[in-house]
């Protein structure tokens, strides 16, 4: 319990990941699945971002000639998060576009109903 409180950012990130994961897998509504996917990704990005942050230090942009590495945070996780966000946004956009197409076709957002309706169509 003590470790969870000390590392509260990581704890929050794992809770977010679990919420997103269960939402994505257990809900039948496609929109809720997409929301779950975004929450799950946000959990991972929070986890990564808090790994790079070091309390009392600043972003690695050299100011006033301070070049000591001990003055700055680790920039690599921030770079990874940015890349991850780009990927996540692309995936969300594609999933949303697909959801719109499927809704126009089947008039439902329930994935199980879509599967049943598609199963009745000609191969």
């Amino acid at each position: 319990m003590q470790y969870l409180l000390v590392n509260y950012e990581q704890t929050a990130a794992v809770i977010l990941f679990c919420i997103g994961f269960t939402t994505m897998l257990l809900h039948k509504n496609l929109l809720k699945k997409i929301i779950g996917m975004d929450i799950m990704d946000a959990g991972i990005f929070l986890f990564l971002a808090c790994q790079g942050y070091i309390r009392g230090r600043v972003a690695p942009i050299v100011e006033n000639g301070v070049q000591s590495v001990t003055a700055y945070i680790n920039p690599v996780p921030a770079g990874l998060v940015l890349t991850g966000i780009v990927v996540s946004v692309s995936v969300t956009a594609l999933m949303l576009a697909l959801t719109v197409r499927l809704y126009y076709r089947y008039h439902t957002l329930n994935l199980d109903e879509m599967i049943a309706l598609a199963g009745k169509e000609e191969v």
Binding site: K33, L48, V123
Partner: peptide, 29 residues
């Protein structure tokens, strides 16, 4: 219709896999 639904199911399961992979390499880092 079958292809669109198959595509969605493919995406959902694969994105779960990608997220687990990303979480794994984040912890490894």
């Amino acid at each position: 219709g079958r292809n669109l639904v198959a595509g969605v199911r493919y995406m959902i399961m694969n994105l779960v896999g990608s997220s687990l992979f990303l979480l794994g390499i984040s912890i490894l880092y």
